[in-house]
Design a binder for these strands. Structure first.
Length: 189
DNA sequence: TGCCTGATTGCCT
DNA sequence: GGCAATCAGGCAA
């Protein structure tokens, strides 16, 4: 749908923040349906030295340059998988890392989330806006309650000072809290 | 071809 | 708080 697609074609930091409250729905191979609320994200915008897309497109990061609203899934430390949502217009390499979900146990942190939802390379490039899919995104029925905290990203060394991680204060699915950033947070309206 | 690093997690001290 | 697990991409030689 054009409307939802355009939501993801915007500036990555804006999408990362606005993605809080969206639902991520996963239907496992055995038919089990898991649905969680996104409560923590990180933005990796164009030109960001911490982004996998910083040095241009490769076989690994190709999905980041694809259509917005699709998935970018990669393996980290040879152990875990991480789920990202592609942002910005097609041809621009950028994405939002989904770090935490509320409503599903064991989804606090990108690696744990991917394992819990049984995600792997097979989902790299998958369209998350398709009406029928085993992994898809759905807009929130109502704006998220509580405050949005803007904090620094986790586990990176370059551009580490930028406030490009966003999370909903008080959510159980948040992997790592930032008390100083929380003192500056303001409630949603 | 070979070495080093990393958007993490969990176990050990 | 420290560190190993485990492997593909990126870059130097």
């Amino acid at each position: 749908m054009t409307g939802r697609r355009s939501f993801f074609a915007r500036a990555t930091a804006v999408v990362a923040r606005d993605l809080l409250g969206w639902r991520l729905v996963r239907v496992l191979p055995d038919g089990t349906r898991l649905s969680g609320r996104i409560v923590e994200t990180e933005a990796y915008p164009p030109g960001d030295p911490a982004s996998h897309a910083f040095r241009g497109p490769t076989a690994r990061n190709g999905a980041m340059f694809g259509a917005p609203g699709r998935a970018y899934v990669y393996r980290i430390y040879g152990v875990h998988w991480c789920l990202n949502v592609v942002t910005e217009p097609e041809g621009v390499g950028a994405a939002v890392l989904v770090r935490g979900l509320d409503g599903i146990d064991g989804c606090d942190g990108p690696g744990k989330l991917a394992r819990r939802l049984a995600l792997d390379a097979a989902f790299d490039g998958a369209d998350l806006l398709a009406r029928v899919a085993s992994l898809r995104l759905a807009p929130p029925p109502a704006p998220p309650q509580g405050a949005v905290v803007a904090a620094t990203r986790v586990g990176i060394s370059r551009a580490a000072h930028l406030p490009l991680r966003f999370y909903l204060l008080g959510s159980s699915g948040v992997s790592r809290r930032d008390r100083a950033a929380e003192s500056l947070a303001r409630p949603e309206e």
